[in-house]
Nucleic acid binder design. Structure first.
Lengths: 224, 224, 224, 224
DNA sequence: CTCTAATCGAGACGGTACGTCGCGTCTTACG
DNA sequence: CGTAAGACGCGACGTACCGTCTCGATTAGAG
């Protein structure tokens, strides 16, 4: 690592940004309430540049100067939009994560599991390029962490009880498996593994690992 | 984890196991490469320093200068032992990984699954401090990657066939789950979750996710 | 340029700099059309520091770190102004060399030799401190080489013919003698040898060594 | 005092070594009173390597490691023979300097000037290869300085009086001119300028610059 | 014809300086 | 105000040589 003594959580997305859609308008770092069209343009250029670069190298190998140059924006201007490059990544990915979580979470308690997994896989497939960058590029660690963070928050309320596996661990395992499988999928050449196949794999792997046992327990408890 | 170069002095990590007596007899070409006692001392100091620092911060935030300083060794001397800090981490961890893999792999095809998981958990518990550093500290990513790499290599030969889940993906999921669970365990205060409980969790989560379905398939195929 | 061993002409001044007063405005190393007052200040500080250090030790014993420290400037900033310390020395001395050459060259073909030498000695005396540093400090070798280089260029056109001594050698000897004599003069305590005396010494030593014989030859040829 | 920067006179030859033939036996740096043939061989190899390298680059660009490698000798062994590379150069050149000085000095007061210059040129020509390395390679500065030093010592006693030019300066000019002329000669392709021509050039340039005027003065004084 | 002491090859080591790179701050000038 | 342009302090990077220092092997020359 180079000069990095300033960053505190380089492997995780910034958690200072509000991800709720309600706060989305104010989520940008230094954007004033008055949206200067130049600032908007710069922000867009930066996000696009980040995605472009992430296709080629991991986040840590991307320098802020590179991003700025690729965006056709002056180096110092970057900092008027984001404090760190992780923040920019956050800005790029937060929406996607939120939407995916809305599809991923129901997996934990949905009635129709297969439909849920299918929806998830379909959504990823529809944004395959983006998610390939986010999950197999340099942002993978950050994405996993953020995904886990959001999942934990939501899972607290609706989780099944399990006598052996704590909820926290169950979420970790579930998210981990999903991320691994989807990442593996995106690393395959396009078309080799269909959306349907991935959904079936997810169903077959994720479900029995944590959910099924809990369901059985509940049934056993209900039958008692 | 980058470098793969074999090192002569692997088992030097603080509380690790006894040396294999087989290494002592190889005097033929080892004469020229006889370890300079000063070099041995420096190497040990560097490994110890790395572990110490990993307890406090992730690998990327650790500077080579820091490691050298903590080891009481000159900065330039670091490079006489390792080209990068990842290489040092490798040196520190490779041994442990190999031993763990020897315990982890049988999980995939052993007859007595519970015994395997128990052995794994017991081994980790016996070196809890070390593994806590390796899995919950800054080395986590590298450890996971290396673990996966070694597992993939060995799994090629002995893996079960599965019509839906490719072997490669199965290994990814299995290793991923084990790492997640063990990491979670090590993040808990010591004593809260017993070795036995972890083994049971592993059994309950890992087994059904990928192995059980394959076993059932085999049985179905054999019954035909 | 990588670590040090790339330099080809470490003892010579850079010849990429335009020394003509006309180009003096744009001659600086990395100066853009807009002169940042901070950059100007840093450049001045570096030049002053170089002169200060040259009073004490030869150029090769002066480290860039020393120069930067003496200038109250960060080490890396040095390289934003000059690629090497020789370049800085060049920046310091180029003007002086040019001016001196304008006085030195006429010596070779001027009508009034004594006046030329007197002008030379007077000019040096007026900048005695600077020239003392440049000729008796660590920059001596570089100064001599640069002086010689410039002299050779100009001498090509206006040199006298000599049947025995090639023009190139004549210039070498002339410049060498002048440098030796002036250096010796500057090494003497101030006031011991007057400007007039030095001019007379120059006249007595330099003239007969190469010029007089050529003049005599010309006269002999003209008389034939 | 620690490493590296200990050298005080990097551009000058060591003056601690006794150059008289009488002390030649004990002049070597770390040689014991008994000359071990192995040490003799190493010393020769080092001297030869130094000369070889000096043909290609200046002294400052030659590293001790290079010399040792070129000599087929271990790096540390160098220091068992010489404290610095300047010392080795000294060892290589001291004899030659002494012999040359014995030929150069009489130039100042010999009766037959031409014979003296001819002897000088002849001697240099007979060791042309060696002197080419010493005067046009990286050792030039050191050679000039050492030559001057020795000359000054001897000149004190036998110098002519001159009302205008101090003896010290006269020696400087004389040695300087000789060195410049011989260096120029050695830079020419062999055979282009004959020994006789160089002797004549020396006679024509060196003599009038400092000696002739003094002679005339003496004659004028004698005639008075 | 040993035996002791030197010399050597090998290379680890602490140390200094190198020149590069990326960071984040700041200043200046422009529109 | 937002931007372009870029100087700057900062500090880690990895490299190169330096000169010192053990550490065996080898190999004289003295007993």
């Amino acid at each position: 690592m180079k000069s990095g003594q300033a960053k505190q959580n380089p492997g995780e997305l910034c958690d200072t940004v509000a991800h709720t859609p309600a706060a989305a308008a104010a989520s940008s770092f230094a954007t004033s309430n008055l949206a200067d069209p130049r600032a908007v343009k710069s922000g867009q250029a930066l996000r696009a540049a980040m995605l472009t670069l992430l296709e080629r190298k991991p986040l840590e190998q991307i320098t802020i100067r590179e991003i700025a140059a690729a965006a056709g924006v002056h180096y110092a201007t970057f900092f008027r939009h984001h404090p760190t490059k992780e923040s920019l990544l956050d800005d790029v990915a937060a929406d996607q994560i939120d939407r995916l979580v809305e599809l991923t979470l129901p997996v934990l308690d949905a009635v129709d599991w297969h439909a849920s997994f299918l929806a998830l896989a379909t959504y990823v497939d529809e944004h395959r390029k983006l998610w390939t960058v986010l999950l197999t590029g340099g942002a993978a660690g950050a994405m996993r962490a953020e995904l886990l963070r959001v999942s934990q928050q939501v899972a607290v309320n609706r989780a099944l009880q399990d006598n052996i596996i704590p909820v926290e661990l169950a979420v970790i395992c579930t998210v981990g498996l999903i991320v691994e499988i989807v990442s593996w999928w995106l690393r395959q050449p396009e078309g080799v593994v269909s959306v349907d196949q991935v959904a079936r794999i997810l169903h077959r792997v994720v479900l029995p690992s944590t959910v099924q046992s809990a369901l059985e327990e509940r049934e056993a408890g209900g039958a008692r």
